[in-house]
């Protein structure tokens, strides 16, 4: 509901503004052309991968003025999925995300710096009730009309999080203190 209101407000702002304006995009979670993936070393032997199945978000993007872009994402941390039910319950619990105490995670950008088709997206990530600044290394993959009459923009990005920085102190071993995030984002222009 809050997001709908936010989207409406953004749309209204765009309509009221001069013709050349950053367009608003809704991240295509409805048809799952976006994903929040992570991986972390298992005891130093291999990479364990997982993702958050439920999230939604919007971004603004204007090819002519890319620095004015912004992105906002809300994540349901209890939708964590590492393809193992018991482990996912453990990750939801107090040792890790404590999702009953912190039912929401989010990212909101504060600045976007562009260098060719590479971007550095800096913003505030809230996870496990802790808000910290992180920088995402992003790449614009492509943008343009889709076959069904919409305009799409697609990006890919990565960032690393130190679990301790977000107050997650369960000891998984020295090789497993950092989790790598891989973000795949496709937005549909509204």
């Amino acid at each position: 509901m809050r997001l709908t209101t936010a989207t409406l407000a953004l749309v209204a702002a765009v309509l009221a503004a001069p013709a050349v304006q950053a367009a608003d995009y809704v991240i295509d979670t409805a048809r799952a052309h976006a994903s929040i993936n992570f991986r972390i070393k298992h005891l130093g032997f291999s990479w364990l991968t997982g993702r958050f199945d439920k999230f939604n978000g919007t971004f603004t993007f204007d090819e002519a003025k890319p620095e004015a872009s912004s992105v906002k994402v809300e994540i349901d941390p209890s939708s964590i999925n590492t393809n193992h039910a018991e482990r996912d319950n453990h990750l939801r619990g107090k040792d890790f995300l404590d999702t009953s105490a912190f039912p929401k995670a989010s990212f909101e950008s504060t600045s976007v710096k562009l260098d060719g088709d590479k971007a550095k997206i800096t913003g505030n990530l809230t996870l496990h009730g802790v808000t910290k600044e992180v920088t995402i290394d992003a790449t614009r993959i492509a943008g343009g009309p889709d076959p069904w009459g919409n305009h799409r923009e697609g990006f890919t990005g990565t960032t690393n999080l130190r679990l301790k920085d977000f107050g997650i102190n369960f000891d998984l071993g020295p090789a497993s203190e950092v989790v790598e995030l891989a973000l795949e984002v496709e937005g549909v222009r509204q």
Partner: peptide, 9 residues
């Protein structure tokens, strides 16, 4: 039924 582990737990 992935996700059911949460209420079941």
């Amino acid at each position: 039924n992935k996700g059911m582990e949460k209420p079941a737990g």
